[in-house]
Design a protein around this nucleic acid. Structure first.
Lengths: 175, 175
DNA sequence: GCCCGCATGTAACTGGTTACATGATTGT
DNA sequence: ACAATCATGTAACCAGTTACATGCGGGC
């Protein structure tokens, strides 16, 4: 496939847990070609080149997949805001949580659709069980996020009603 | 607090969803001081300086907290490996999942301990409900991860027994 | 003729980590 | 004394995004 197509595939297929930008892909493909991990085939018609992985490329892929997983330092903007939620007030926090819930629901719906697609397609039978694993992860975490959001909204509502004239911006002071 | 203490606090208190390095903190504090958002008080004894947020600093904090949450592009090494799990084989994938489950269990235990701590401490009553929100999020996602891992292990075991002589490295070929 | 999607690549920039240099204080 | 921890800062480096420059080909 071409670099462009590769990026599209990553966006569409792995989009929920991986991403690459053109600035990554093209230099990477050039390097992979230099190291003999992929082969370039120039198209005569236009200036595009399609790439195909070589045997040594698949070997290298397996090597890389076997390397220890490195996780990057956590940075969850939602949780940071909620932790310092006193400064935002219950109403603003509630809005944030509702937003998060809406997105989790959107994701969950997407996963359900993907599951239907995968069940449909008879191709790639040996890859399917692995793809279902990642899908299930997404479903579990999305459902967890929704359940949490419901609890959180309830807690925030109670907080708002218990101490209505809180230190900061609440429904009344904003109107 | 000092820059050092600030980093410790971030690590210990927000460690599950936020992180900052010295390379960030010290330049940031200098800039915040320049903009009048924090005040520096030099200690006479040693070269250390303690910082205190100013009124305009808290205002700025609220401003920043109100800004839209920006999420960084996803990059989940575990899911990437599982998605391409055919290249690793069921046994290796199983190990990855078990690892993930162990860590989720470790996290969950930590959260339970923190919850006990928070319930104990009578201070900071107005911050507590917000902190509990972030804690609950961690608990939900950890439990979801554990449940998923259990399903995934079962699926992988079945996969391993159904087609024992898979294309690649499995238990037999590795011994 | 013109816009849009396909396609390739580079350059600038940014956000951040890591490693290093340095030194005071405290506890054993 | 010496090790560990507290403390400050900088420089080098890195991964990665964004934006830009460029051009082909097809559809309207």
């Amino acid at each position: 496939m071409t670099g462009y197509a590769l990026r599209e595939a990553i966006r569409e297929v792995l989009g929920h847990f991986w991403s690459e930008s053109f600035g990554q892909i093209y230099p990477a493909l050039a390097e992979l070609e230099r190291d003999g991990y992929v082969e370039r085939r120039e198209s005569a018609r236009n200036g595009s080149s399609t790439f195909r992985i070589t045997p040594s490329g698949t070997a290298q892929l397996r090597e890389l997949l076997s390397e220890p997983i490195q996780r990057d330092p956590p940075r969850n903007g939602l949780l940071l805001r909620l932790f310092l939620g006193r400064h935002l007030g219950p109403a603003a926090c509630r809005a944030l949580v509702l937003d998060a819930r809406a997105e989790a629901e959107r994701r969950l719906a997407e996963y359900v659709a993907i599951r239907a697609d995968i069940a449909q397609a008879s191709e790639m039978a040996d890859e399917r069980p692995y793809q279902l694993l990642t899908l299930a992860f997404g479903e579990h975490t999305a459902r967890a996020a929704i359940a949490w959001a419901n609890e959180a909204v309830a807690a925030l509502d109670q907080l708002d009603s218990t101490r209505p004239s809180s230190t900061h911006l609440n429904k009344e002071s904003r109107t």
